[in-house]
Amino acid sequence: MAYHIIGDQDTVLGYRFAGVSGDVVEDPESAKTAFLHATGDRSISILLITEAVEDMIMDLVIQHRISSQPPYLTVVQDIWGPKGKRKSLQELINEAVGIRITPEEDD
């Protein structure tokens, strides 16, 4: 199983249609267990988590990202709409690079 998803039951159901195995979690405790289990599983290469789950176990997620080990994480939006404002990858890049460099000013 290359993909795995952790999220609420509706989002997980959707990804099940694409053949993604999934854990349905409702509270931080079960999210933590599912996340640790998924990151320990060598057969999973891409781990999808919903925004709600990311919020529940933020420190674990950050820890896992820093280790730069597979499975690689992607945060997907919950099916019932976004959970708060999030930094997009573009904003992350711009913030890190500094505002003085933007593609428009580049050339």
Binding site: Y3, G14, A18, I46, L48, I66, S68, L92, V97
Partner: peptide
């Protein structure tokens, strides 16, 4: 639904690669 989610998954996979790299690079930067 199945068709749409398969298409979605394809892009999500690409994003997984980018997200990991960008996150780490931005942090290091």
């Amino acid at each position: 639904t199945m068709n749409d989610f398969l298409l979605l998954l394809e892009v999500a996979g690409k994003l997984a690669e980018l997200e990991s790299s960008v996150w780490l690079l931005a942090r290091e930067l």
